[in-house]
Design a protein around this nucleic acid. Structure first.
Lengths: 110, 110
DNA sequence: GATGAATATTGACGTCCATCGATGAATGGG
DNA sequence: CCCATTCATCGATGGACGTCAATATTCATC
């Protein structure tokens, strides 16, 4: 359920607040109330961001009594890495200086 | 100029249309008009997205006569990889099952 | 079951942003 | 010099999203 096209996870990372949350989680499991102390956002806002992070597959939530512990989900990040690798790896990066034409504009139709 | 905190580049990737553009660029340099043919967006919209991609440091634009050739910028993607690595690498991932307490709620002050 | 703490949900509000049509700027060819 | 092509900019518009206050829910304790 965290498949989609991968853009959801990138969009999750594309929010400064969420990126900082992930940095805080990088050192290990952290509960919501602790996150709330290190940030300058309201509790509903934090809850919203955590939901986004969990839905995007980057974070897992574990209920422990009244608290909820959040931790990074390595599989989610591996998927991101894979997407980036697929973009950069195959590369037929040769700019093809020779031809003065350009794109495939000419002779594209049937 | 592509520094910031990295969230800009992730936000750029977090748009399905832009992600597809990057996939098209993965096979090599492509000019705007060719991109326009493979997408289902208007020309102003493409121009807007290309500006976002260039500003985020993921793409470079080279003018060749009337056309503009776009290509991936490896340095931008390396920065993304580095950010992801920093999030997952250090990990003190031990959940610490033992203590029934939870977070650091108790005894936080000096 | 009443209380208190941590978290989730709801509803509203303001801003950002993707999108488009219309128009302008740059470039090269007849 | 005029024209066609490619790309950039502008203004408007509609939807997505981050944010909060208020409220509900969950859970342990007494």
């Amino acid at each position: 359920m965290d498949k989609q096209d991968g853009s959801a996870a990138f969009r999750a990372l594309g929010e400064p607040v969420r990126l900082r949350i992930l940095q805080l989680l990088a050192s290990g499991e952290v509960c919501g109330c602790d996150l709330l102390e290190d940030l300058t956002i309201s509790q509903p806002t934090l809850s919203h961001h955590m939901k986004v992070l969990v839905d995007s597959g980057l974070v897992v939530a574990r209920r422990r009594a009244v608290w909820v512990h959040y931790a990074l989900r390595s599989e989610g990040f591996e998927a991101l890495r894979r997407t980036i690798d697929e973009l950069t790896a195959p590369g037929a990066k040769a700019p093809e200086e020779a031809s003065g034409s350009c794109c495939s504009r000419k002779g594209r139709g049937t």
